[in-house]
């Protein structure tokens, strides 16, 4: 067994955040079954180490662009669980007033730019955010998360090229969970080495074990520093795996149970918890304390969402355009 990557308290915090996302997602699945949450729902279970390692490694004024599997990123960025839950309940207190739902979480306060449900759609956006920082002389990083499915999109290639050509501070974070919905990487890509694709645009690229939260954190810290100081893009490929189906509608017919079980053996939450148990004072009571904290937060979030008023239909048309045009 490897030694603990960080001091006890920091490791416990990483476990707590992974547990928080795991339980949040399990609760979403349950609420989906109860009909409280509708639409498409994509769970992050199994992939928690990527967001927990990467998102807190960014600065508060950096930007995050994510995908439709973004609950974890949103939580880590600091969007309260209650407003995310209310959003999925379609309530007026939701972070997007019930207009976005699970796939479209946004938050201006934490510079969280979605919640993009077009595969690859966030990449050009990230390039533009970085261009604005570059042109206005700000030392900020735009971290753009996307799945490996997005590398087949033209938007990926156009964005890689623009970011490299203009030397823009984008941290490309590819969450490679091996399946684009039901299509395995080697069934959709002639070149499955994703780092090679980035390198072909002269973007430094690194492959990271996405099931190892400390490895993700260290790689992100280093890459973000490089992007910030060097004012150029970096590409990280996080090798990860989702335990659950693509969405709540997916019967998961395209993967073998043995494969899923094998990845579960490497589960980041278990791995770090077991390390803590073996190497420092961390017992069942300590773990239960984390469970209780998470559970309290979740119960409060659900109660808040339940009690909130639905967005009034009379406001259906608000926020399509600015309410009043400024006069020149």
């Amino acid at each position: 067994m490897n030694p603990l990557p960080y001091a006890r308290e920091q490791c416990i915090e990483l476990v707590r955040q992974m547990l928080r996302i795991r339980r949040f997602e399990e609760t979403c699945a349950q609420l989906y079954g109860e009909g409280k949450i509708r639409g498409f729902l994509h769970l992050y279970i199994g992939e928690e180490a990527v967001a927990v390692g990467a998102v807190p490694a960014l600065h508060a004024d950096d930007a995050v662009v994510a995908t439709y599997r973004e609950h974890g990123h949103a939580l880590l960025r600091g969007i309260p669980a209650r407003t995310i839950m209310a959003e999925m309940f379609g309530k007026s207190t939701g972070c997007c007033r019930g207009r976005g739902g699970s796939m479209h979480l946004f938050d201006a306060a934490t510079r969280f730019y979605g919640g993009n449900a077009i595969v690859g759609g966030g990449l050009p956006l990230a390039v533009g955010l970085a261009l604005a920082d570059r042109m206005q002389g700000r030392q900020r990083v735009t971290a753009c998360f996307f799945g490996e499915g997005a590398v087949a999109e033209g938007a990926f290639h156009e964005s890689m090229n623009l970011a490299a050509l203009w030397q823009l501070p984008v941290l490309f974070c590819c969450e490679n969970n091996l399946y684009a919905m039901g299509t395995a990487l080697d069934r959709s890509e002639s070149q499955t080495d994703l780092c090679l694709k980035a390198e072909s645009y002269k973007i430094p690229a690194r492959r990271v074990d996405g099931m190892d939260v400390a490895a993700v954190r260290e790689a992100t810290l280093a890459a973000a520093a490089e992007v910030r100081s060097g004012q150029r893009p970096v590409f990280l490929e996080f090798r990860t795996y989702r335990y659950r189906a693509h969405s709540m509608f997916d019967p998961d017919l395209y993967r073998r149970k043995e494969e899923i079980d094998a990845w579960k053996q490497r589960g980041p939450l278990h791995a770090l918890t077991n390390q803590l148990r073996a190497q420092v004072v961390f017992d069942e009571t300590d773990f239960q304390q984390l469970e209780d904290q998470v559970s309290t937060e979740l119960r409060e979030a659900i109660a808040f969402a339940e009690a909130s008023a639905p967005e009034p239909v009379s406001d259906l048309h608000r926020d399509v355009r600015a309410a009043a045009r400024p006069k020149t």
Binding site: P124, G128, L129, M135, G154, E158
Partner: peptide, 22 residues
């Protein structure tokens, strides 16, 4: 720009979000 309509229009959107008027 390169011949990347999707890319540079998207970058324009991002730049607008970032405080510019592209």
């Amino acid at each position: 720009t390169p011949l990347s309509e999707l890319g540079f229009v998207g970058a324009g959107i991002g730049a607008a979000l970032g405080g510019l008027r592209p």
